[in-house]
Simulated scan of single mutants.
Amino acid sequence: MTTFGQRLSSAMDLRGPVCVGIDPHPALLAAWGLPDTAQGVETFALTVIEAVGGRVAAIKPQSALFERHASAGVAVLEKVIAALRAADTLSIVDAKRGDIGSTMQGYAEAYLGDGPLAGDAVTLSPYLGFGSLSPAIELAHRNDKGIFVLCLTSNPEGASIQHARDEIGTSVAALVANEAARINASAPGDLGSVGLVVGATIGDAARQTGVDLAAVRGPLLAPGVGSQGAGATELAHVFGDARRAVLASSSRGILRAGPSVSALRAAAAQSTEQAAGALGR
């Protein structure tokens, strides 16, 4: 079996460098004429998959917006992951989990194992120390799956931690990126399977924090494309020489075109064309 990095690289070459988020916010459900219930979330999510499954490189369900509907919502997330598998579309479960020891092992088994919540990749938080992610990294490698580790996020609060520096002046963000680069150094193909989450609206933050995105050799999941303000200029500015590793994530910018399947499909195609141009694909 090929690694997650190899599969994602092939999907980006074939379908373009865009990941569509499935973010069933209450306001979006209302705009689509759907109830704010687990059933409404299921209709919303499966409509997105009908529209863009098999047409984009990856789809990223936001776990929290399923979890808010308790066990019924988690059951819908399981259906969504299964539907993405059936649609031959890579799934990135946006769960942002992070813990230590047996708890991290439990999260790893849930999202990177063989169960119904396991996608092709999961987002993780490294802020209990990058080493705390070892159970997830090891299981991802055994199962040819991927992880995306929070590195430079676009929320204003993130800088207080991510831009902080240790006693020799290395930023936390750079420490995270350096660990990902170390793991990916021996990975086959163009991309390793340890990716980073890097906001598309962070401006000069990578340079300010000493993060060498090109050296990571892993996929760079870039939220913030579309409705959050990042277009071609911002993508080129933020990622520079690492642009071909970028998987541009767009959620509301595409989802607000629904509930029409054809309109969602057109919005995703337009987003993909714009991102491909900005990223040199």
Score class of each variant (00 low, 15 high):
272 T>M: 10
176 V>Y: 02
209 T>A: 13
60 K>C: 10
275 A>Q: 03
255 L>K: 00
172 V>N: 03
14 L>C: 00
193 S>D: 07
116 P>N: 13
201 T>V: 02
35 P>E: 15
224 G>T: 14
64 A>M: 03
112 L>P: 14
94 D>R: 08
144 D>G: 11
19 C>I: 01
265 R>L: 00
239 F>Y: 09
37 T>N: 09
253 G>H: 06
124 L>F: 09
78 E>A: 13
106 G>D: 14
131 G>Y: 01
59 I>L: 09
183 I>Y: 06
26 P>Y: 07
127 Y>T: 14
32 W>Q: 13
207 R>E: 06
157 E>C: 03
186 S>D: 11
267 A>Y: 06
238 V>H: 12
95 A>D: 04
244 R>P: 00
114 D>G: 12
57 A>K: 14
114 D>S: 08
50 E>T: 15
22 I>D: 10
255 L>F: 02
71 S>Q: 01
56 V>P: 04
98 G>H: 11
40 G>F: 12
255 L>P: 00
106 G>F: 08
144 D>V: 05
215 A>W: 06
101 G>P: 09
21 G>E: 13
133 L>C: 11
194 V>F: 06
222 A>I: 12
257 A>G: 05
178 N>M: 03
244 R>L: 02
18 V>G: 02
179 E>V: 00
182 R>A: 09
70 A>F: 15
95 A>G: 05
270 Q>L: 05
136 A>K: 02
85 R>Y: 04
178 N>Y: 00
52 V>A: 03
119 G>I: 07
167 E>N: 10
43 T>W: 10
161 I>H: 12
169 G>F: 04
177 A>W: 02
205 A>I: 15
9 S>F: 11
155 N>V: 04
112 L>I: 15
76 V>A: 04
64 A>L: 01
81 I>P: 02
179 E>A: 00
37 T>F: 12
19 C>N: 04
224 G>F: 12
215 A>D: 14
21 G>L: 09
122 V>T: 08
213 L>K: 11
152 L>C: 02
113 G>W: 02
185 A>E: 13
57 A>T: 00
57 A>M: 03
219 P>H: 07
1 M>E: 08
71 S>F: 05
156 P>T: 11
22 I>R: 08
85 R>D: 15
269 A>L: 07
73 G>H: 06
211 V>P: 13
